[in-house]
């Protein structure tokens, strides 16, 4: 006896979403997921039909689900895979690239690849080992390289919009971290949309209102093959610890994660963080890196170029 029923058709429910008081069958869940993504895109004015969207794909469930939905909705997309040269975990980078390529080929979508070791002569773990910045965590170096590569590809490919697969769990984990330290400038910048600026595309997160289990369910129910394994460098990361804590809360009190994130956005829209933080919110004067041309906050080479040419600051 299976009692949980789809709210739309009364068929057998496949996914229950306690925070919405909603259970849906396989078909209606996928339909709902696509509709909700479209609503988020409109609600936050992320992009319009005549804009070309660069989708950052990692081979994971979120980014592939996002690309699948945007393609279904008829948006013009280009996928970007950044090969980080991570060989641990049975060739993590090669494996996730293969999945992204198979996904794109099956749907006739265009996938661009930025191969970091081939282009810059070093993998992320190698860069991390060489520089002080990465000695503690490859992720720090990785973040710099990914941000640079995404901006570079967006400009080169004529994409005014960069979409990433961040889900609500990702956003809530970051929010939790920034709230613990009351990093007001970070809180001010945490948005579903970051407007474009010279040299930077607009950055959008169309899945930011879905729980992580929903994007996984969408990927599974739509036959999307994604990389299940975690990047080996993610083990023990703060974001995983925060997610575990928030999920404990969620289990005790369904809807906690959603409330935490959505009331934050509402409070911010009402100006909750603005007045006290005016000094911090001021963007630093814009300069351009003489080597790669990307905007930077400091004079001289940008952080990425210093990282690649070996003159990164010794922190």
């Amino acid at each position: 006896m299976n009692v949980m029923r789809c709210k739309k058709c009364g068929g057998k429910a496949a996914v229950q979403m306690k925070q919405h008081n909603l259970a849906l069958c396989r078909e209606h869940f996928s339909e709902w997921f696509v509709e909700q993504t479209e609503r988020t895109i409109h609600k936050y004015r992320m992009f319009k039909r005549d804009e070309r969207v660069l989708v950052a794909v990692s081979g994971g469930k979120d980014s592939l689900a996002l690309w699948d939905v945007l393609a279904k909705l008829g948006y013009e997309t280009v996928g970007l895979y950044i090969h980080l040269g991570i060989e641990e975990a049975e060739g993590y980078s090669d494996h996730s690239l293969a999945l992204a390529q198979a996904f794109a080929a099956a749907r006739g979508l265009r996938l661009e690849v930025t191969h970091v070791p081939e282009r810059y002569g070093e993998s992320i773990p190698q860069m991390a080992a060489r520089t002080a910045r990465g000695r503690h965590r490859a992720c720090s170096v990785c973040g710099v390289v990914k941000r640079h590569s995404m901006n570079e590809a967006a400009m080169r490919l004529g994409c005014g919009v960069l979409a990433t697969g961040h889900n609500l769990d990702d956003e809530a984990a970051v929010l939790f971290n920034n709230t613990l330290s009351w990093s007001v400038d970070m809180l001010l910048r945490q948005n579903p949309v970051l407007p474009e600026s010279p040299g930077f595309p607009r950055k959008v997160k169309p899945l930011c209102r879905f729980y992580e289990r929903e994007s996984a369910a969408y990927a599974i129910l739509n036959g999307i093959e994604y990389v299940y394994e975690e990047c080996p460098h993610a083990v023990g990361s703060t974001s995983l610890v925060n997610k575990a804590l928030l999920n404990q809360l969620e289990q005790q009190s369904p809807g906690s994660k959603l409330r935490f994130y959505s009331t934050f956005l509402k409070a911010k829209a009402q100006g909750a963080f603005a007045s006290g933080a005016e000094g911090n919110a001021e963007p630093p004067p814009l300069q351009f890196c003489p080597s790669c041309g990307q905007p930077t906050t400091t004079a001289g080479l940008c952080l990425f170029c210093r990282l690649v040419d070996g003159s990164a600051p010794q922190e």
């Binding site: 299976n2 259970a23 990785c142 941000r147 975690e230 993610a234 703060t238 974001s239 997610k243």
Partner: peptide
């Protein structure tokens, strides 16, 4: 869903959905 019944001889796969690095 949570309330579904598992029967004798069933094999079910559990899929961890949480992932996370820094960026």
């Amino acid at each position: 869903t949570d309330d579904a019944l598992l029967r004798d001889g069933d094999t079910a796969q559990l899929i961890a959905v949480i992932s996370g690095g820094r960026a």
